[in-house]
Nucleic acid binder design. Structure first.
Lengths: 382, 382
DNA sequence: GGATTTGGTGAATCAGCTG
DNA sequence: ACAGCTGATTCACCAAATC
């Protein structure tokens, strides 16, 4: 077999300085770190995490839930005549863990946070303040929400997730093709219809009570991880709970790290993830977008004899005819250049994908030259 | 993660003096106030408004031009009124208008704000900071959103509305029964599926271009006003635009006041509202008792404008005539209820399928209202 | 006249690599 | 930092034109 001609450059370095590149072996992969999530994250190096999924508490009132950035405990506010103390405490807590999350994330990492109207607006605003760049807000539309028993409001039938990159110009990962495939060949939308976690998936303690009050459905994590991480990526969940993130990460071939300070949850999560089996590698492999495929120069297709010099190309409506030249450029009258540039000029368009614009006469009719590229790719693939 | 408990909010800001009751006649009802909304609201007395609907600038931060895959150009929102220098500037703007909105609202008044992920988190957090008590966040799921042309993110297919009262202990108005009626006898949920504003509803200028870049669908305002205001209430819209709020308020028998600083928008809105006809009082009357409740999604067909309130229905033999009301119930003389229930009573039958029993006058003759339902289903199916 | 095709468009934070 | 080149990428609905 011939060697694969990959015109694509090496993938961009994921961290700015190779000197601070962290060896995955030095990370506590597949472990649940004990204790407060801010403290736990402090034990991790900078720029080592590919993706964070966070399901923080909504609660301002429960004693012991909140700690200040310095680790000291925030007293529960029982006299709530001053709202700013309550919201302020929640904001300090949120800012503390988001700051630490930002430190451990790689420059091309991303973060997901889920919440309800009680907390998500504060979380979202703080994320923006800290420099995170919101990519989408996602609505998890519950098929089976709890009704509003008193008939006083609309049924609260959804929760909101925020997906953000490290900054306005930061890179991030989005498996567009995998999401489109998952959604019956339509773009995946920002509203996801999924049932709440119940039935056999809902973990129970020895007494038969639910092990955790807010266990998230695995389908939700499945979609999050499939959409925005790659196999082998390191996924961190600072509020690990019963370990839904870890279980789905293991299944999908992602590495994971959790933070959880409740012994009971850690125990349940550990047992749960131990039972989880990783999927076969071929099952994890997702549809690639063309953007991720190796780039092929038109000249290579010409060189390989698939569209030899002198071949006549035309557009679908046969408005123009161009001729392939030996160097992989094409000529249409006096106009010469790349397949893209000539197509663009002829149409007066802002841009043009020459692979789909130009066609050639095949035995079974007019075909886009992209077909020749596909043939070429199959031929050179090992 | 702890158990889910509500965040605490500020005590409701109470009216300083109950003696200062405002006479509606002293308010600029049915008028669009010229100028900046903060200045305009300053001309209103304290505690005079029942409901505010606000569609503030979203502070979109767009990059360069965007083209569709077919090369056509996307007409983006680049208007000067949507430009802010920073999050800080946007926050100051938001705090200013929300503060004034809070002053003019009655103690049992409420506010709706619509936004996208660009601004809604900041708006929601500031609302909480100012003492507003969030009652629901509502997701407007668009049936026909603009796709993500570059395949870089999830299709941004929804916008978010926040509904809030004046404070944790404040009273507010919610027409639970009307919403349940509108939703086929199921509690109305926090996710609303509605198409974007297009077609004949979309206002155009003399040159045929859209009169406003972000005109909201009337069905959205219809649901907001029907759910959280009463006939005769005073509704204020600080960002009036082309006056969707005013048009629907007039139709539903609510008083309205707008603020708008752009001459062109004021002009379009004035002409639009002048053409709007108030519905008959009986059509506006909403169902308050379960006994009279229809059990159908007929309300959604009404809301969509396919069979607007006031429409006359008759049976095939034209023996009876009934009138459609705003919440999807119908009235035939003193008899009111669902399309099924009223039809059943009139015929003295054990049951009646209202969809086939009732007819409306279409351009091409008498048609069963099921035809309108089919049209509706085609429109909203996703 | 009805069915089909074609074209237009909507609140959008919409590319990545090389030189 | 910036310019230039390559080439990847769209869904639902409406309206007008065409068959």
């Amino acid at each position: 077999m011939g060697s694969v001609t990959k015109l694509r450059a090496a993938p961009a370095a994921r961290v700015k300085s190779a000197a601070v590149k962290v060896d995955k072996k030095d990370l506590p992969l597949g472990r649940i770190l004990d204790g407060d999530c801010v403290e736990a994250m402090r034990s991790l190096p900078d720029n080592c995490i590919d993706l964070i999924f966070a399901d923080p508490p909504y609660n301002l009132q429960l004693g012991g839930d909140l700690n200040r950035p310095d680790g000291s405990h925030v007293d529960a506010v029982t006299d709530h005549w001053d709202q700013f103390d309550s919201f302020g405490a929640y904001d300090r807590f949120t800012r503390a863990w988001l700051t630490e999350a930002r430190r451990v994330l790689k420059p091309d990492g991303a973060i997901w946070v889920i919440g309800s109207y009680h907390n998500i607006f504060r979380v979202g605003a703080l994320m923006q303040d800290l420099g995170f760049w919101i990519l989408n807000d996602i609505v998890w539309r519950k098929t089976n929400p709890m009704p509003n028993f008193r008939g006083t409001r609309f049924t609260n039938a959804h929760e909101t997730l925020i997906w953000a990159s490290m900054g306005e110009k930061a890179k991030y990962h989005f498996n567009y093709r995998a999401m489109k495939t998952l959604n019956d060949e339509l773009q995946m939308r920002s509203d996801w219809v999924l049932p709440i976690c119940s039935g056999g998936e809902r973990l129970k303690d020895d007494a038969g009570h639910k092990a955790h009050p807010t266990q998230k459905p695995e389908a939700l994590l499945y979609r999050v991880l499939l959409a925005t991480s790659e196999a082998g990526d390191v996924v961190l969940d600072p509020f690990f709970g019963t370990g839904t993130t870890g279980a789905v990460a293991k299944r999908l071939g992602r590495e994971w790290i959790g933070c959880e300070r409740e012994d009971a949850y850690r125990k349940v999560a550990t047992a749960r993830i131990a039972k989880e089996l990783p999927l076969d590698e071929s099952a994890i492999t997702t549809m690639q977008s063309k953007r991720d495929a190796p780039r092929v120069a038109f000249g290579a297709v010409v060189e390989a004899g698939l569209l030899p010099p002198g071949t006549k190309l035309t557009d679908k409506q046969r408005r123009w005819i161009a001729e392939v030249r030996a160097d992989g450029s094409i000529a249409c009258g006096a106009l010469t250049g790349s397949i893209h540039g000539v197509g663009k000029e002829l149409q007066g368009a802002p841009s043009c994908n020459g692979w789909s614009f130009w066609h050639y006469e095949a035995a079974d009719g007019l075909k886009p030259i992209d077909a020749a590229r596909q043939t070429y790719l199959l031929a050179v693939e090992d």
